[in-house]
Design a protein around this nucleic acid. Structure first.
Lengths: 123, 123
DNA sequence: CAAACATATGAACAACTGTTCATATGTATT
DNA sequence: AATACATATGAACAGTTGTTCATATGTTTG
């Protein structure tokens, strides 16, 4: 299903590069997929959530563990865990009063590692 | 170099989970690294930039090609290309009046692919 | 060198985001 | 049942972000 192809103003070089534009149009994913992808990365794009993900990669933890570990409010952590859960990056289980959170996806680590590689290779 | 360890309020289970917290403290990267990582993913967390990255993965393109392709203002594209360039994800070369942008990193595709895998595996 | 073109950039504005504060929900203990 | 504890959640607020508009920079062409 092709994306929005309704024309904007074209400059001279658009016409020259018509083939390139056409090639991209054929291979680029649907708008909705690109939007979902951006939404996913947006979740990784906050240092509090990044800390939480990294912590949970070591071990499952409860909310107050995380709050104590990062010296943050229980409420702030809880709000962010909600975001992570909606993105299916994190799952939880209840044990009495305590709720334990854990990573819910084996790709989380891989995505983060790719990011680390990029950062470490910068000059 | 250890991160901020100044104490927040501890709940009862913190004390119980002291070992877990200590283990995370030992293995988690420096605050600065986590911040940089989040900054990197933030760049992927916008659908306009995601579109641009995907387009440039097919072929280098000039600014007005991208504007035409996505039916957006030249200015809007230009602003986002600036963000991508600051993140070292994109490089450019000048050819007369026209400036061509291209991916500047072989990890871009891999990072995006990992994200796609996550999205596609959702139920 | 003047006009046309491609791109960059600063200011302004609306929309979005993350934290805090107050409070609600749910569970265990006595 | 009442209290204490762990977590969730809604409202509010400040800070951030992406687009638009106007304009500036830099290059080519006549």
């Amino acid at each position: 299903m092709p994306n929005d192809v309704i024309g904007a103003e074209r400059c001279d070089c658009d016409v020259i590069h018509d083939d390139v534009v056409a090639r991209v149009r054929k291979t680029i994913p649907r708008d909705e997929t690109l939007f979902d992808l951006a939404e996913l990365f947006k979740v990784f794009g906050d240092s509090t959530r990044m800390k939480i993900l990294w912590a949970l990669d070591t071990s499952e933890m409860c909310v107050c563990d995380l709050a104590y570990l990062f010296n943050m409010t229980q409420s702030a952590i809880s709000h962010q865990l909600r975001v992570l859960k909606l993105a299916k990056l994190v799952k939880n289980r209840r044990d009495g009063k305590v709720i334990y959170y854990a990573l819910d996806d084996e790709h989380v680590r891989q995505i983060i590692d790719q990011g680390l590689t990029h950062i470490n290779e910068l000059p």
